[in-house]
Write a protein that binds this DNA or RNA. Structure first.
Lengths: 246, 246
DNA sequence: TGGTCGCTTTGATCCATGTCAATACGATAA
DNA sequence: TTATCGTATTGACATGGATCAAAGCGACCA
């Protein structure tokens, strides 16, 4: 029972250039004039396809470009010497990857495609150059980075103060919201990552994630079938988040 | 027994302008030519003093400027509707505050002085304008934001995978390293925040923080006297971090 | 068609950290 | 000096999530 409702409407018309891209408002090109867009187009020429499980970049790779996800789904993770690792984010269409590398000239995390995916390669020095010419582009880029900082704040909040079920509820609502703003169904979607990856992202063990899923199903908040999730009672999940005991 | 060694050498010579500022390399002005610096000077004219416990800005405040800490010590925190809050960072001289506001035109967290402090006010639209003229400034700003992203990654790692004593060890080593790069003693410093604030930052309860401090003292890693910390065995702390059991 | 493999679910038990409570300490004010 | 208040330490106990272990389920392949 594949979730038909999750087929994106707008993505059908995707073309090569930013000027034609349906991800417009999520990405860097919002508010640009026609001629500005065409300048951006020439910058973003390169495209890169990745197979599932392929790395877009690895920690330590020299930093040269940032990437806009065109289609597909990614995770970023950090690996400690002692083997522990943590998923630091999941990225979907329209989201930008690789900004961690600017500060040190090298990437500090790994980015891996969780399904066959395609990204726009945005050479960073060229982006800086163009955004010295185009005020709106400059500001858009700053906004993207800032939003990433705010996202991180939210994740810290989650990791620092929430209990297991709250974390998972927050995660599901966040996924739902992001699918929505891409024209997919808010209520039904397919998770691309394993329980272990969810757990790593949420600071939990995979068993705990699994138990929380089961619990939510018992409560009637969601229907789970492997990686297919149907949200039956979003408010139920939201309540879990807000007036939590401690 | 105040820690004399923690008196900064370089800060004595602080003047008003970026061009004279000893925090140079930590801040936005690195690598700028004389004339570029003087342009930056005119932008950063405004200064703001804050008393201990005073807010630099609050969540929801309209975003207009970012701030460079000149002297003193800050915390940033996020407050949830249900009353839970989390400290998301501690900022000291040379560090930049307020970039969370760019994306939404409003600040998303609170910034509070933990001791009497002074900041340079950097009106953001002017900074954007000047960094369209000065490539190096533009790049410096991008680096600062990127480093903030990487810092957040580290904190997620800490919150997601480390146990209490590891977290505190990481925290102490980080503080020590930051004091060092400002010309203070690496081995002896004064914490400006309470156990509760440390706990909030590390995702622990204040009692757990206190116990970990006591434990480190028993082990001979540090000497604790209230907020005065002396690091006796930094390698001991580092070992705690690396070859940890799980 | 059966076998293997990766992923997920579920149960039983353990332990790190949270919780609650008492006490101590240090600064400041009366 | 003594009182007060915020902060820190320490102890006793409770518990949420980790850990260990065993099935279950689906997808893919031979």
């Amino acid at each position: 029972m594949p979730n038909k409702s999750a087929v994106p409407i707008s993505l059908v018309t995707i073309k090569a250039a930013c000027s034609q891209c349906s991800l417009h408002e999520l990405c860097l090109s919002e508010g640009l004039s026609k001629e500005e867009l065409s300048k951006l187009d020439s910058l973003v020429g390169a495209r890169r396809k990745l197979k599932r499980q392929q790395n877009l970049y690895r920690a330590g790779d020299p930093f040269e470009a940032i990437y806009a996800v065109r289609t597909g789904f990614f995770k970023t993770d950090v690996l400690l010497e002692d083997g522990r690792d943590q998923v630091t984010g999941f990225q979907m269409a329209g989201e930008i990857l690789g900004m961690d590398g600017i500060g040190t000239e090298a990437h500090t995390c790994n980015a891996v495609a969780l399904e066959d995916s395609e990204v726009c390669v945005i050479p960073f020095s060229q982006l800086e150059q163009l955004s010295r010419e185009i005020k709106t582009l400059q500001h858009n880029f700053h906004k993207v980075m800032s939003r990433e900082l705010v996202r991180d704040q939210g994740l810290m909040m989650l990791l620092g103060t929430m209990r297991a079920e709250e974390r998972l509820a927050a995660f599901l609502l966040n996924m739902s919201q992001r699918f929505t703003s891409r024209g997919y169904s808010a209520a039904e979607f397919h998770l691309r990552m394993t329980r272990e990856e969810i757990g790593s992202y949420l600071g939990l063990k995979l068993e705990t994630v699994s138990r929380a899923f089961s619990r939510f199903q018992e409560e009637g908040f969601i229907a789970v079938q492997q990686k297919h999730i149907r949200i039956l009672d979003g408010d139920g999940l939201r309540k879990l988040l807000n007036h939590q005991p401690r």
